[in-house]
Amino acid sequence: MLSIRGLNQYYGASHTLRDIQLDIQSGRVFCLMGRNGVGKTTLLNTVLGLLPAQSGDIEFKGAAIDRLATEDRVAQGIGYVPQGRMIFPDLSVMENLRVALAGRRGGDSKIPQQIFDFFPVLAEMADRRGGDLSGGQQQQLAIGRALVLEPSILLLDEPCEGIQPNIVQLIAEVIQRLRSEQGLSVLLVEQKLPFARSVADDFAIMDRGAVVATGAMDELSESLVGEYLTV
Rank of each mutant, 00 (worst) to 15 (best):
S185C: 07
R18W: 02
E227Q: 15
G106Q: 00
Q140V: 07
Q21L: 09
L147W: 02
F195K: 10
M33N: 12
G27C: 08
G103R: 03
I205A: 00
N166Y: 10
L22V: 01
V225C: 07
G79F: 11
S55C: 04
P151N: 14
G84H: 12
Y10I: 05
I24A: 01
R73K: 10
S185T: 08
R35G: 02
K40V: 04
D108Q: 13
Q21M: 08
R104I: 03
L68D: 02
Y10F: 12
G136C: 07
V47Q: 09
V212G: 09
P89G: 02
L43N: 03
G183H: 07
G135M: 10
A142E: 12
K192L: 13
K110G: 04
G107K: 02
A69M: 08
D57K: 13
L154R: 03
L149A: 12
Q137T: 07
T70H: 00
S134F: 06
M33K: 13
V199R: 05
S185N: 05
P112G: 00
M217T: 05
L22I: 09
R104C: 02
L188E: 09
N96R: 03
R85W: 07
Q113M: 11
G162W: 12
I175Y: 02
L188Y: 03
D127N: 15
G49D: 02
A172R: 10
Q138G: 15
A53T: 02
P112C: 00
Q76C: 00
Q176E: 00
L155I: 06
G12C: 14
Q9M: 15
G215V: 03
G162K: 09
V74F: 05
V186R: 09
F119T: 08
F30E: 06
V231P: 14
I24Q: 00
A102R: 13
P112Y: 06
T214A: 14
R85D: 10
V121A: 03
S3G: 05
M206E: 08
T41H: 04
L149Y: 07
G136A: 00
G226N: 14
A53V: 01
I24M: 02
A13V: 15
N36C: 08
L141V: 08
L122R: 11
E219D: 06
Q76R: 15
M33P: 14
N96A: 09
V99E: 04
D218Y: 11
Y11F: 15
Y10E: 00
L141W: 08
